[in-house]
Amino acid sequence: MAVNIRELSKKHIPFTGGHRLCAGCGASIAVRQMLAAADDPVVAGVATGCLEVATTIYPYTSWETPLIHNAFENVAATISGAEAAYRALRAQGKVEKEIKFMAFGGDGGTYDIGLQSLSGAMERGHNMVYVCYDNGAYMNTGIQRSSATPMGADTSTSPAGKKIPGKPGHRKNLTAIVAAHNIPYVAQSTPAHWRDLVLKTKKALTVEGPAFINVLATCPRGWRIPDDATISTLRLATDTCFWPLFEVEDGEYSINYRPREKKPIEEWMKPQGRFRHLFREENKHLLEEIQEEVDRNWNHLRRLARDEVE
């Protein structure tokens, strides 16, 4: 499978501009890249969240492909129902076209409130791609912590206070949880790595059965970074191995990007206002703890991918 940017750039992407997502939002960039990867028509679902509220304000819609928004925690179940309808109506000869099904949810709608719905849909084996755009908090409603929020981040429900320095505890490893469903395809990517994301989307749309892609997406408001720092911040996430690019194909792990020089996690954290308090002297031990967690996860992933671990 190859990806050609010249051809991609000529493609009509059924997701228009003019929506109300913030400048620099990682979600809209990811959605455009992923829709560009599809060669067949896509029926999309979206969980309640930034992507939904900013792209479907009645009577307007940014979606030039069929879209359903149901509720916050059930985009996986909703798209699984649409996919079931497709199988039923296709078997009856009422629909002839090849159609793909994609569900989009933020980390709140996926890691937290939508986890059961996601797990059920993955287990049942629907031919669908679930995309989590993970920006690490409930951004739509004002930056409340989720189980995807990195340790130490200052959010409106885990504020960096006098006693508690931001979000306690590490993130949930959702990609591993979904991989444990033994579905044909699971991957991590970011829109800063467009070739990686487009290729992975193509693979996810091609496999028979469920696929899951966890996409790290910036939120300039929540991360407190400038609008034009989206791509550089996402690159630092992979260069520090906070967010490794990898895929799990029929249970086989492979790492898609190995930084030439693994950067310290501080380089990813420093430009982000949500971590500013961690750079105070009294919180230095937290930075060490976060680095240890990144290293542990990276080494674990390398073992899974049968990489040599130093």
Partner: peptide, 25 residues
């Protein structure tokens, strides 16, 4: 001829039939 989905909860049952009905089924 029904495509029958044994979902993991009633919440998903209703969510899935919403998706299916919106798809014309």
């Amino acid at each position: 001829d029904t495509v029958f989905e044994r979902v993991e909860s009633e919440h998903s049952a209703m969510s899935a039939v919403v998706g299916a009905a919106a798809a014309g089924a």
